[in-house]
């Protein structure tokens, strides 16, 4: 479903988009890294994760073209097995992997997967944010690690059916070095992210279950009236938090709803931590002012003390030696 179009139709267009400068630069960097049959990429891989293996001289770069994602995934699985049997270095450029998510097959396209002579498969992620003096933006590295962990899980499904294979839990992150366009690489251990993703996948509500729970006739067609769409979006449970703004096209719509309802989460998740069962701005302020709320509730007690202390300080009556 196109959430951006849906957001525009709801009257809260999302301020997303990618600058073409960043886009061009990202593509150019990836092309540079993979140029020349992946020589530079394999050099970095060998340097960081080569173990004792001999430096790659001949690198097999199998052709992965096939019709449709299913075909490409099958082709990738076959290429992986062949490369492993061949017992040398191989680089799979933009392979296609399949993973079942919430009961439906999802297709994933890592930047590259490398096959080592010893049968190890390593996920390679190429990103255009820089590594400056060996460190990089931790939020971006974290996102890359979570993304790679999904690929690792998908690769493990194929590896289960292949003999003598180990899917590496350390992935190779390739980025521009300092302020240049030269590639450099760092090894990222994704065991944590893999464990988390595996549990998330196991717990994910099946898409069919979400669809089955929706009222009959629910539609997300952007051509419909905003009222119809509003009702449709409402019928899918979702909890707004300010973090959504950076991630979801519908966040501004959800924020408007949350604010209209006076939900305290609109001010951030941490705000709610100390408010206990009070969930609306009105209820909290009424409790603080002594108009509502159970005086035995610790939240209410704390709120009233906070309100009194704040008022005292603002009135300046706290003057003391």
């Amino acid at each position: 479903m196109d959430k951006a179009a849906l957001a525009t139709a709801l009257g809260s267009p999302a301020p997303f988009g990618q600058s073409q400068f960043a886009f061009v630069r990202g593509n150019a960097f990836e092309a540079k890294v993979k140029a020349d049959g992946g020589t530079e990429l394999m050099r970095l891989l060998h340097e960081r994760l080569g173990g004792g293996a001999e430096a790659p001289r001949e690198v097999l770069v199998p052709d992965l073209t096939a019709a449709g994602p299913e075909g490409r995934a099958a082709r990738t699985a076959l290429a992986l097995r062949e490369a492993t049997e061949a017992g040398g270095w191989a680089l799979l450029d933009h392979p296609m992997l399949a993973l079942e998510v919430a009961g439906s097959p999802t297709y994933l396209e890592p930047d590259a997967v490398a096959v080592h002579p010893d049968g190890t498969w390593t996920v390679v992620e190429i990103k255009s944010f820089p590594m400056i003096d060996g460190s990089a933006d931790a939020a971006k590295v974290g996102a890359a690690a979570r993304q790679s962990a999904v690929y690792v899980l998908a690769l493990e499904r194929i590896a289960e059916l292949t003999e003598g294979v180990e899917v590496g839990h350390r992935v190779l992150l390739v980025c521009p070095k300092d302020f240049s366009n030269l590639p450099t690489a760092s090894v990222v251990d994704v065991r944590k992210q893999r464990a988390v993703t595996r549990r998330q996948l196991a717990r994910l509500t099946r898409i069919e279950d979400i669809a089955a729970a929706l009222p009959e006739g629910t539609t997300f067609d952007p051509e419909c009236s905003p009222q119809q769409l509003d009702a449709a979006v409402e019928s899918v449970g979702a909890t707004y938090a300010p973090e959504c703004l950076a991630a979801c096209e519908l966040a501004f719509h959800c924020r408007a709803k949350a604010r209209a309802a006076g939900a305290v989460e609109a001010l951030g998740r941490s705000v709610r931590g100390e408010l206990g069962g009070l969930t609306t701005v009105g209820a909290v302020l009424a409790a603080a002012a002594g108009k509502e709320g159970d005086p035995a509730d610790p939240t209410v007690v704390a709120l009233r003390r906070a309100a009194a202390l704040r008022a005292e300080a603002l009135e300046g009556s706290a003057a003391c030696r």
Binding site: M131, S135, A138, K192, V196, Q200
Partner: peptide, 14 residues
């Protein structure tokens, strides 16, 4: 509701 989105620092041992 709060999936783990920890940042990752390069070079830090897990």
């Amino acid at each position: 509701e709060h999936p783990s989105t920890e940042p990752v620092q390069l070079g830090v041992m897990v």
